[in-house]
Design a protein around this nucleic acid. Structure first.
Lengths: 235, 235
DNA sequence: TACTTGACACCTAGGTGGAAAGGT
DNA sequence: ACCTTTCCACCTAGGTGTCAAGTA
């Protein structure tokens, strides 16, 4: 099931929508003329049911100084690429709002705690297999399992820097590597398309707040098997 | 210290020598005209002292059905590449002679046991980072630590297929990826150079024969630490 | 009070040679 | 007799949440 379209209409529904790269954002009129290598690209989120299960509780992702993996892992199945063209795949994380949150244990809900802190340096995470041909990307699931989240503003390990107690939306970008170097700058806005899956939004935290999130992580993440007690809800 | 030269003279000394790719072997007159992207490439074997220590005892490498890593690992430091040119790095293993061996425990030596068995299918192992630019290859040691050896003639995991009780010489190849596709076939012999380090020769075995090799492996390979007794020769 | 850090036990994943069994 | 295969305990390497302590 294709869950994302590579068009430029700001999408307000709760399914999927396309967003522009910050550096290339325009009114939408220019970016609607996409290069044929990206215009047909379709992206499907893997482990969709698991993401939804977390999203319904309010997904939290741990950030640490050393860097922490995401769970669930962001994985996609891609189709519609030019098999012979070369692509770079990358991710970034954008702030969902300008808000700092706090968790109210008594009501088990997130409350606004003020304006967002100073914005962390925005980074791009290139998929380590980049660049590769369309055929390579499409033949199996593309996984960002090595991506790590950190709250260390001075991180020099290339991890994604996020502010704890802030909400983020992961974004996925497909960039066509134009073999003509002269045109690649002029047509940069034509050579990529971006995808956001609202069910992958999450709150960055240094320790889990919602106990039901903790339990779901323990139940589903194989590395947390040591904390399982009853109800072996494996895989 | 540069230990290998990219020339075409068959080298009979015990230091280093260049060998041609089997498919491109010629009299030597043609291949002496190398493309500038490979003519200056120099390769230095890492862990040279360790390799020599094993070589003096007669290096053995385990082969298994599932595939076994090499120890020591084949690692090289490269210089002299064109930083902006693209290269593919690969390895293969050639039979040192046409002989099958057996080990005489009483004399602790290898004896000829007849003609070589039917030759195993020859494979190339591409370094997983291939292709990459010269600058990338040169900036740090290139390691073939994921390469595995197998004695399974029907292996479909891409491992290197070797015959047990036969002797092999690892070879390392640097291939310049010519951006002009039409010329890459015509000039294939100009676009690569190869390196052999005699101290990396070894006997393929399914179980270690020389006990001193076993002890040296246990002493130096961190994964074999469980078998260490006295003399903590830890790295 | 509210959040962050670091040490820790407990996992997954997979690389070692040993030892016994299997094969020819 | 000689070689190969399989299972195993013991490692390395690193991903989990917990808990106590630290910070402001």
């Amino acid at each position: 099931m294709v869950r994302s379209l590579c068009d430029t209409n700001p999408c307000m529904t709760h399914t999927t929508c396309e967003v522009s790269l910050p550096c290339c954002a325009d009114g939408g009129s220019l970016s609607s003329v996409k290069a044929p290598q990206v215009s047909g690209v379709r992206v499907q989120l893997e482990m969709h049911a698991l993401w939804q299960q977390f999203d319904q509780l309010g997904t939290e992702m741990i950030v640490t100084k050393a860097g922490r993996r995401m769970f669930p892992t962001f994985q996609v199945q891609i189709s519609g690429m030019d098999p012979t063209a070369e692509y770079v795949l990358l991710m970034d994380f954008i702030s969902v709002d300008n808000t700092r949150y706090r968790y109210a244990f008594h009501s088990s809900s997130w409350l606004v705690a003020g304006r967002a802190d100073v914005v962390a340096p925005s980074r791009m995470h290139f998929h380590p297999d980049s660049p590769a041909h369309g055929a390579q990307w499409m033949k199996q699931t593309v996984s960002f399992d090595t991506l790590k989240l950190t709250n260390n503003l001075l991180d020099d390990n290339g991890h994604m820097i996020l502010n704890s107690m802030h909400r983020y939306q992961p974004r996925f970008h497909v960039v066509y590597v134009d073999p003509a170097p002269s045109s690649s700058h002029l047509n940069a806005h034509r050579n990529f398309c971006s995808f956001s899956f609202p069910e992958t939004r999450f709150m960055a935290v240094t320790a889990y707040q919602n106990h039901r999130i903790t339990q779901l992580k323990i139940a589903c993440n194989p590395y947390a098997k040591g904390f399982r007690t009853t109800d072996p809800q494996d895989r």
